[in-house]
Structure formats: C-alpha cells, structure tokens
Design a protein around this nucleic acid. Structure first.
Length: 442
DNA sequence: AGCACA
C-alpha cells in the first residue's frame, strides 16, 4: 500500500474513506467528468457535484476503499495534478463514509415531467396552452393538472425520458410565451423537474386532465355542453363551443384585408387549411379553418380584439364557427383550400373534403409556416407583428410577406407547434420536431 | 481551496 506521507500538510488529514472530497472544480462540473476522473482507479458508484457555496466542490464514492486509496495515493505522488477541464482539482478523503441522498426523484430522468407554473395568474393557464408548449418537443401522451401547496402544477407525460429531457432543458425556468396567453395574464414561469410517475392515470378528458392517446376516453360530464362538443373553459366554466374553424369579422376596415393577409395573420398559430371570405352586414367576414381545435383556440385568444394594422384599423373579432370543415369550391381571391398540395396547378381530383390529409398538410405547412409560428403575433406593441406594418397599407399583402412576419433574429427556426398537434388517434410522435427554444442560449 | 441535504 502506498504511503500518503508525501503530502506536506497534515492539519486536515482524514482517515481513509471510499468517498473522496474534491475542491477547486470548474463551475458546474458534471457527474460524467467526475466519473471520468475516478474511473482509472476503480468503480465509481456515486458522485455528487456542485457542492458548497460556490458549487465547485464534489464527492466521488468508489465501490471499494482500496480504489479511493489508489486515487489519493496516485495524485499524492504524481507530478501531474488531477484535472478537470484543465483546472487543478484537489483531492482528499471525505469525512463521511458514503454519499447520501445524492439523487432525489426530481433528478432522475423519466418520461413524466412535474411542471410548476409560477405567477399571479398561473391557474389561468389552460391545459391546451400547456399541451401546445410541450408538444413542440414530441408527442404528449397525457397531462394532468392539480393544485398543491407548491402552487398550480401539471404532470406532462412523454413517450420517453429523452423527449421529456429535451422539453425540460428547453423550458425549465422560462416563461410561457406571452402570445399564447390572454394579454391580461401576468407572466407565467415554468419550473420543471422529473416526476417519479411513468404513466399517468387519466379517467376523463376534462379541464384538469387529458389523455391524447385515447380519443375515446369519456369526457367529464362537466366538460360537455348541449351540443355535445367540448367546452373546456378555465376551471370548468362554460364557454361557447370551441371549434377548429374561426369566424373573423373585421371592424373598421380602412384598408383592404386580402386573403393573403388573413392567411399570414392566422398562420402564425399553425397551419391554416382553408379560408373563405364573404360580405356580411356591410362588412367583411372570414372563416378560417385549422386542423385542430387547440390551434384555433390559441389563435382566437391571441387575436381577438387586435388590429391587423396600427391605429385601430382592421380590428378583428373572432368567434368559433359551427363549421368543422369548410367546403371550398374554387380557389380564388376570396376562398382557398391550402390543403391542396399545389394550388397553382389545377388539381383534377376533387378535393378530399371531410378528410384530413395530414401528411399533405404537414408538408405544405412546413414550407409555408416555417419561421412564422413564434413571431409574436400581438399586433400593437410587440416586435414582429404590426410594428413593421406598412405605412402604405394599400400594398399590405406584398409588404407583409417581407416585413412583419419575420421572426426576431433571436428566435431559432422551428416547425410550428401547431403542426405538431397530433391527431388524437394517431399516437405517433412527430418526427424531426424542432423545439422552439434553444437548450442553452449562450 | 477545505465536506452535501432530501
């Protein structure tokens, strides 16, 4: 056995332990780096990093005392000090015999996330908004929400721990994008840990819980309205029946609002399948069809009462239509079916109304909507929407293509979250989903 | 650069 006596300092000499105490580590040293460091001397059975006020200390626990002794002995006589990322690390025996409570369940990666929504209005965040936010990272199986001492919380179930981890890394500590919430709602911060759950039990589709893998799950009686449609309001309060088709009327239409303008405005929230414009009561109205209700809900909440142009021009009033699938007979300047792959070409096949050609929509959508989704859609104050709106609104359609819908430079390109709303019966996670948040903005 | 916390 090698002697430790070459160490000049004896003041803090510890009796041997299979746990080693490390100091002077680089900030936020990882567990992997600690394992790398200890591996040559034996089996590292546990570690703990980011210890101490400066989070620059750590512990390594070996399977066997002799392995810890081997490591201490080696570096006691080595000319090269132990290093992590080029920084000298100081080693000594710990004064404890094992690492205790290194990991809590919150640290063990799993497929279910425990999400705490912080903020004044946290409990006004709907399950649909949460679904939208988390769907950007993969297929969300189930969501449950509940009220605890910690506040308003949700469990979000993904297929696997990897997907959950990517969502956690991207979203933990961030706020829910403002434009997904009503504008009078205070900012809501997401705090995310892993849950010990692996499969949530959802008995009803309700305003508190959803199972997106099972469209046949009974809807909670409190969540059904007279028409048999979902009417899942916040805290169960009744709303007008939601629909995937929105009815927009345009007030104070000082400037021409074209089909293209509407398409761009509403595409910010997901793929627009069809638009039909018509005159009513001396004004212009339009029906806008999304593939799913959730996207329509988000669009409605974000756009209701907003103006397409600064100065109170072309104010939008939005309600849910009773339609679920518009019948577009002809593509012209007042109506369009965007689900037809190439509208420029005359399609000899009649459009497949009543069905939802998901792949086709997805493909076109990826092309058309990429980048626009997370441009903040709030007209007045926010960057990216009406701030760049034409001073010469007559050519609005053309101008809007080049200006106001460009996402801010800081926003990574992404696939619209709306597209990732999987049909509930599909159960297949979207491939190549690009999260809307960078894991590490640096 | 000197011993953690669910």
């Amino acid at each position: 056995m090698a002697s430790v006596s070459s160490q000049p300092q004896f003041r803090y000499t510890q009796p041997p332990s299979k746990v080693l105490h490390l100091r002077n580590l680089p900030w936020e040293c990882t567990e992997e780096e600690l394992i790398e460091l200890g591996k040559p001397f034996g089996k590292v059975v546990n570690t703990k990093c980011n210890v101490g006020a400066n989070r620059n200390q750590a512990f390594i626990e070996f399977a066997d005392l002799n392995q810890a002794i081997a490591m201490i002995s080696y570096y006691a006589s080595s000319s090269e000090p132990a290093q992590v990322r080029g920084k000298t690390v100081y080693l000594q025996y710990s004064n404890r015999q094992e690492i205790v409570n290194n990991k809590t369940t919150a640290d063990v990666a799993g497929n279910v996330l425990l999400v705490t929504i912080e903020g004044q209005d946290a409990r006004l965040v709907s399950i649909d908004v949460l679904h939208l936010v988390f769907s950007a990272f993969g297929f969300v199986h189930k969501i449950t929400t509940f009220e605890k001492t910690a506040g308003f919380q949700a469990l979000v179930q993904f297929s696997d721990a990897e997907t959950a981890t990517s969502a956690k890394n991207a979203l933990d500590g961030r706020i829910i994008p403002r434009y997904l919430l009503s504008e009078n709602i205070a900012p809501c911060t997401l705090r995310i840990t892993y849950s010990a759950h692996t499969d949530l039990s959802v008995k009803f589709q309700s305003h508190r819980s959803r199972d997106y893998t099972n469209p046949y799950l009974p809807v909670a009686p409190s969540a059904i309205d007279g028409s048999g449609q979902f009417s899942l309001g916040l805290d169960g309060k009744k709303l007008e029946p939601e629909s995937n088709v929105l009815l927009a009327s345009i007030e104070n239409m000082q400037y021409a609002v074209t089909l293209d303008v509407l398409h761009m405005v509403f595409s910010a929230f997901g793929p627009v399948q069809k638009i039909a414009m018509f005159d009513k009561n001396g004004g212009v109205q339009a029906l806008i069809q999304y593939p799913d209700v959730q996207t329509a809900v988000v669009a409605k909440e974000a756009l209701e009462g907003h103006c397409i142009y600064d100065g109170g021009f072309c104010k939008l009033h939005i309600s849910y239509s009773r339609h679920t699938d518009l019948s577009i007979k002809v593509n012209n300047d007042r109506s369009r079916d965007y689900t037809i792959p190439n509208p420029a070409m005359v399609n000899p096949q009649p459009s497949i109304l009543g069905q939802q050609p998901v792949q086709t929509v997805g493909a076109t959508a990826a092309h058309q909507y990429n980048g626009t989704q997370y441009a903040p859609p709030h007209p007045q104050p926010s960057a990216g929407w009406a701030s760049g709106v034409p001073a010469v609104p007559q050519s609005a359609a053309g101008q809007m293509t080049s200006h106001p819908y460009m996402p801010p430079a800081s926003m990574p390109q992404m696939t619209p979250a709306g597209m990732m709303q999987m049909p509930a019966h599909s159960g297949v996670p979207p491939a190549g989903a690009v999260p809307p948040y960078r894991p590490n903005p640096m």
